[in-house]
């Protein structure tokens, strides 16, 4: 597969899987405002997914469209990072997953606005304001939960620790990522990681949370299609209709 198509699918898959996960909170949020916020974030991510998939499908030229990419690929063909397929868990788990992702996503998208590929730069420009808003919101909530009650602090710290090993995959560049850096299309990993660590540290300090060690061992494999069992369940639900009734439309 062409490196750029692969890279675009990774971007789209991250956004789609997280969008699907957040949508599962619809009607079950701990407060009405949170319910609406999570589904609005999910909607933003779904819109961004479509922009990435459209471009990937066009470049691929194999007759697949955004729907085929979303609904007709199996788990090993998905390239999302393992962080995004981690279960929703309790609300601290959901928000910590979001905060780790949003922080990376913000700096990545900000970097992509300077991409040598004008279409990628345009999509990044379109997404940047949305992504900025997401990060401000998740950072605020991490502070409120971390610097909240004893129970909320404990749950938020537990979520920070449990998800930490999934936070580094986005910076583990393989040949696909490196090809994009070499072509001036994507920002380098080292810069993003430094920005990510600085922002997480800043928010954790304010939230009275302890940041796990930066040099901890990190899980990886999602970008190459090696997923945890969680992804299969997510796809089973998301793809059910198209699998059961091929070609069904509204």
């Amino acid at each position: 597969m062409d490196d750029k198509v692969n890279y675009l699918l990774r971007l789209g898959d991250n956004a789609l899987i997280l969008s699907q996960q957040l949508s599962r909170w619809c009607g079950k949020g701990p407060a009405l405002e949170e319910d609406m916020a999570l589904t609005n974030v999910a909607l933003d991510l779904l819109g961004q997914t479509r922009l990435w998939y459209d471009y990937a499908a066009e470049l691929e030229g194999a007759g697949r469209d955004e729907d085929a990419l979303a609904f007709l690929r199996d788990a090993h063909e998905f390239k999302n990072c393992l962080l995004l397929e981690q279960p929703n868990g309790n609300y601290a788990d959901t928000l910590m997953r979001q905060f780790y992702f949003d922080t990376w996503h913000y700096f990545l998208i900000e970097g992509l606005t300077r991409s040598a590929d004008p279409r990628i730069a345009a999509i990044a420009e379109k997404s940047l304001k949305e992504v900025t808003y997401h990060l401000r919101r998740s950072g605020d909530l991490i502070v409120r939960l971390g610097d909240g009650t004893d129970v909320s602090h404990a749950k938020t710290q537990a979520a920070a620790n449990a998800l930490w090993m999934y936070s580094g995959e986005v910076f583990a560049y393989d040949t696909v990522d490196e090809a994009m850096v070499a072509a001036g299309i994507a920002p380098a990993a080292a810069d993003l990681r430094a920005q990510w660590l600085a922002h997480v540290d800043e928010v954790f300090t304010e939230a009275t949370l302890t940041m796990p060690p930066a040099d901890a061992w990190m899980q990886s494999g999602g970008k190459q299609g090696r997923h945890s069992e969680h992804l299969g369940y997510i796809l089973a639900e998301m793809q059910f209709l198209q699998r059961a009734y091929p070609g069904a439309t509204w």
């Binding site: 913000y106 304001k129 950072g139 409120r144 922002h199």
Partner: peptide, 22 residues
Amino acid sequence: ISRLRTGAAAAISRRAHPAHPA
């Protein structure tokens, strides 16, 4: 957006107001 481009961290920084952490 142009300011975001030149100061990515500044756009989301929380440090400027330690007196009102909440």
